[in-house]
Simulated assay, not measured.
Amino acid sequence: MLLKVGDLARRCGLTVRTLHHYDAIGLLAPSARSEAGYRLYDRDDIARLHQIQALRRFGLSLADIGAVLARPDSSLASIVQQQIGMLDTQIEQAMDLRSRLSRLQDQLRRGDEPELAEWLTTLERMTMYDKYFSQDELARLPLYQGGKTAETEWRGLVDEVRALMARGIAPQSDEAQEVSKRWMAMVERDTDRDPRLLAKLNAMHLNEPSVQAQTGITPELMAFVLQANAESKLRIYAKYLSPEEFAFMREHYGKHTYEWPELIGALREHMEQGSAPDTPAVQQLALRWLSFFRSYAGDNPETHAKIRLAHEKEPELMAGSLIDATLLGFVKDAMAHLKPR
């Protein structure tokens, strides 16, 4: 049985454009073509598409998926096993909540005064995640899937930061910068390096006082971590910029900290959907990227060249940014199509 591209797109919930993009980048090439030149997909193609979609749900980029599928040990059976493991985690979480509710129900039936604190906290937090994330996003969010282990690790790191703040340690200190680097590494791990998930996590923490109370991640604590992280980057930039250039950067660096993940995520979405760099939507995002960059780099091309040199020689500048080489290439292509203003 052979399926035309339109039929396959409808059956699997993708767009024809997405399947065309998968073909163009060599991720999923149709096994045959009709006499009229239409793409035709067979059973093996559909099995490969299952692997691609499963890996996408795990949060992998298309480039990473291609690398995984190219490995000799990659198989549909192993990927299905990973899907089963992800579902097992979701079932375990649901069963845990069910057990809590059952205990509450038994207490209420006996006329006992229930201890609601832990149960309400669990229920509130799960409801809060549902408010900001779709079920598909929650399935791809390692922080949510990590359960109590992830919570314990984050609680320990939050306590470290709070201790630094209580001691009056400045964000510019080596100690604060070291903690901020570990913080950013955990952010990358627990969002699976997906800026779209990070943007939603940031929104949840900034907008929900109950989440701040549960996690201890207050706006003040987050500002301390972000400032310490910025200081670690500024320390590197200082080696490449003149005193005047560096003074301007220090004054304005971090101005769009909370806006970057949303912008990076929007560009990644277009890139993965196969949008061309010169489409109007991508061009608007490229202009926004350029505006964010110039907000701390200024408008001098010589300064821009120094910053590019710093990025070439200092890989640490990209640590925690959620920007990879593929996305950066897409942005550069988009900027190359910008019309002079």
Score class of each variant (00 low, 15 high):
4 K>Q: 08
5 V>L: 05
6 G>F: 02
9 A>P: 03
9 A>N: 12
13 G>I: 03
15 T>N: 04
17 R>E: 03
20 H>I: 02
22 Y>W: 09
23 D>R: 03
27 L>C: 05
29 A>N: 12
34 S>E: 09
39 R>I: 07
41 Y>T: 13
44 D>W: 02
45 D>L: 00
48 R>G: 02
50 H>G: 00
51 Q>F: 00
56 R>H: 00
57 R>Q: 05
60 L>D: 11
61 S>V: 02
61 S>Y: 05
68 V>W: 02
68 V>E: 14
75 S>K: 04
76 L>E: 14
80 V>P: 05
81 Q>R: 10
82 Q>Y: 03
82 Q>V: 08
87 L>I: 09
88 D>H: 07
90 Q>N: 08
92 E>I: 00
92 E>K: 02
93 Q>M: 01
99 S>W: 02
107 Q>H: 09
109 R>N: 09
112 D>A: 01
117 A>H: 12
120 L>N: 15
120 L>A: 14
120 L>F: 12
121 T>C: 03
121 T>L: 00
122 T>P: 00
124 E>R: 11
152 T>P: 00
154 W>G: 00
156 G>V: 05
157 L>T: 02
158 V>H: 03
169 I>N: 10
169 I>H: 12
171 P>G: 06
179 V>W: 13
181 K>R: 14
185 A>F: 06
187 V>D: 09
188 E>Q: 04
195 P>L: 08
196 R>A: 10
198 L>I: 05
198 L>D: 13
199 A>G: 06
200 K>H: 09
202 N>L: 03
211 V>W: 04
212 Q>M: 07
214 Q>W: 02
217 I>K: 07
223 A>R: 15
226 L>F: 08
226 L>M: 11
226 L>S: 04
228 A>K: 10
231 E>Q: 14
232 S>Y: 03
234 L>Y: 13
238 A>T: 13
243 P>M: 08
243 P>N: 12
249 M>P: 10
250 R>P: 06
252 H>C: 10
253 Y>Q: 04
255 K>Q: 15
255 K>F: 08
257 T>D: 15
258 Y>G: 08
260 W>V: 06
260 W>Q: 02
265 G>H: 08
270 H>E: 12
271 M>A: 07
271 M>C: 01
274 G>R: 09
277 P>F: 06
278 D>A: 06
279 T>Y: 01
281 A>C: 04
281 A>R: 13
284 Q>L: 07
284 Q>N: 15
285 L>P: 11
285 L>Q: 13
286 A>G: 13
290 L>Y: 05
295 S>W: 04
296 Y>D: 15
296 Y>L: 02
297 A>V: 10
297 A>S: 14
301 P>D: 13
301 P>K: 09
306 K>V: 04
312 E>H: 02
318 M>C: 05
322 L>K: 06
325 A>D: 14
327 L>F: 01
334 A>Y: 11
335 M>K: 06
335 M>G: 05
338 L>S: 13
339 K>R: 14
340 P>C: 02
340 P>Q: 07
341 R>L: 06
